[in-house]
């Protein structure tokens, strides 16, 4: 989504968000992310207004004090930015790819099923299986921090079963243009 993103040409405008809308965003974040209200408060203090940065192709980025904290495509789920995920890694469920896939992930490729099912990979256990279309953080074999954020294309059980083709679509990854954008 952010492989090519130029702030000068891809941003349509900044608008402060109405407080009523902010309230609904806050409750949406609390229900979608596994985060306590207090921790969200630390990321996004109540006093600080949210700024909506409208970008091309229905992408909206939300910033606090000029720092992007979340983004959304159309009216889909909210994704935290990678820097937020690094600070609070537990807010999204985690999947892990093997070492061989890191190279491709950093080039912006979608993650294929075998990367998760091989020895270095990791998927949530069956009792915590995720349906298709849920946001996940992508970790890598032997690494501590997340490399990317994606959305599952297949349910995690299907990834195990089918083991072919795209399993997780990458939304943002280390080194893309959103990563390069430290403040807006």
């Amino acid at each position: 989504m952010f492989k090519k993103f130029q702030p000068s040409s891809d941003i349509a405008g900044h608008t402060p968000v109405k407080t009523s809308v902010q309230r609904s965003i806050r409750s949406a974040l609390l229900s979608q992310w596994k985060i306590e209200p207090e921790t969200l408060e630390a990321i996004w203090p109540k006093k600080e207004g949210l700024v909506h940065v409208k970008c091309r192709e229905h992408v909206s980025i939300y910033t606090v004090n000029g720092e992007p904290i979340a983004f959304q495509h159309f009216d889909g789920p909210f994704y935290p930015t990678l820097r937020v995920i690094h600070k609070y890694p537990y807010i999204l469920p985690m999947v892990k790819v093997d070492r061989g896939a890191i190279r491709f992930l950093l080039g912006g490729a979608h993650m294929m099923c075998p990367g998760f099912t091989s020895k270095g990979g990791h998927l949530p256990p069956p009792e915590e299986a995720l349906p298709a279309g849920s946001p996940v953080t992508i970790h890598a074999e032997g690494k501590e921090h997340a490399v990317g954020i994606g959305i599952t294309k297949l349910a995690t059980e299907d990834i195990r079963k089918i083991n072919k083709g795209v399993g997780v679509e990458v939304v943002t990854y280390l080194g893309d243009d959103l990563w390069a954008l430290q403040s807006l």
Binding site: E36, E38, T39, E41, A42, H86, K87, Y88, P89
Partner: peptide
């Protein structure tokens, strides 16, 4: 009152 979890 619960404390926010410190960031990594």
């Amino acid at each position: 009152a619960p404390q926010p979890r410190p960031p990594v």
